[in-house]
């Protein structure tokens, strides 16, 4: 039989070793992995900053060229003029609608920064074949969509210098610090409201919005 003392000693040693590792602060002290080379970084370093366009690559694109690329790559989902097909997002319109009962947030009415549009097309579009467009074509699409929204003229040429200068309509209407908590409810326990004041303002009963089955594997039954 081992004595309990013999068992405990190695555990203490492990804890001490772990403690010294966790306290490591010098870069590379574990030494795992490889230092990323400039070529490796360049391959993945695709991000573009919205506010100043930092990261936009060389290249350029016109509104006219953008119209051609758009018709081929985008119109099927987003509509010929950016009006959106089905529930795919509208890209155009909604200006002045943000205080309405049914606001329409689009590139023209809502997006605060034009370089974000370049970044998003480049990183995610077209949805079935992302990362297949050239930088020039992404510039051209950006120019075309900005032009559809009357944010740039027909002769606009999008490039790394011109895009950050496009003034977006909603740019100054974002608050980038979270004001919450913005409710100050108190946890009342008894007689918190008059019984006569308790009333139902809306019910999901009978609205017929709740899915009852979502596929052949789903045995969920209507109530």
């Amino acid at each position: 039989m081992y004595s309990s003392r013999k068992i405990y000693l190695p555990i203490v040693a492990i804890v001490l070793a772990g403690g010294s590792l966790a306290g490591a602060a010098e870069p590379g002290s574990f030494g795992y992995g490889r230092v990323a080379t400039p070529a490796q970084i360049a391959g993945w370093d695709i991000d573009v900053r919205g506010e100043d366009g930092a990261g936009l690559p060389p290249g350029k694109g016109t509104v006219d060229r953008g119209a051609d690329v758009y018709a081929e790559q985008c119109a099927a989902c987003h509509g010929t003029f950016g009006e959106g097909e089905g529930r795919f997002p509208k890209l155009v319109g909604g200006v002045g609608s943000l205080r309405d009962e049914r606001p329409e947030p689009t590139v023209g009415s809502y997006w605060p920064f034009a370089p974000t549009l370049w970044d998003y097309i480049n990183r995610a579009m077209p949805m079935p074949a992302p990362h297949t467009l050239s930088a020039d074509d992404v510039y051209a699409l950006t120019a075309y969509i900005l032009n559809l929204n009357d944010l740039v003229p027909q002769e606009f040429v999008a490039d790394r210098n011109s895009l950050p200068k496009v003034k977006m309509r909603n740019r100054d209407n974002f608050i980038w610090t979270d004001p919450r908590p913005d409710t100050m409810a108190k946890p009342c326990m008894n007689d918190c409201v008059n019984a006569a004041d308790v009333s139902i303002s809306s019910t999901a009963e009978g609205r017929n919005l709740t899915p009852r089955t979502t596929g052949p594997l789903d045995t969920m039954q209507p109530k």
Binding site: V48, R49, G50, P103, T116, D119, N173, I175, W176, P179
Partner: peptide, 22 residues
């Protein structure tokens, strides 16, 4: 970075037309 997912989406539109980000 103000990516699409933190500007066009995942921002909270208020009744006065301003939006809360982050």
């Amino acid at each position: 970075w103000h990516s699409r997912e933190e500007t066009s989406k995942y921002t909270d539109l208020m009744p006065d037309g301003t939006s809360r980000g982050f």
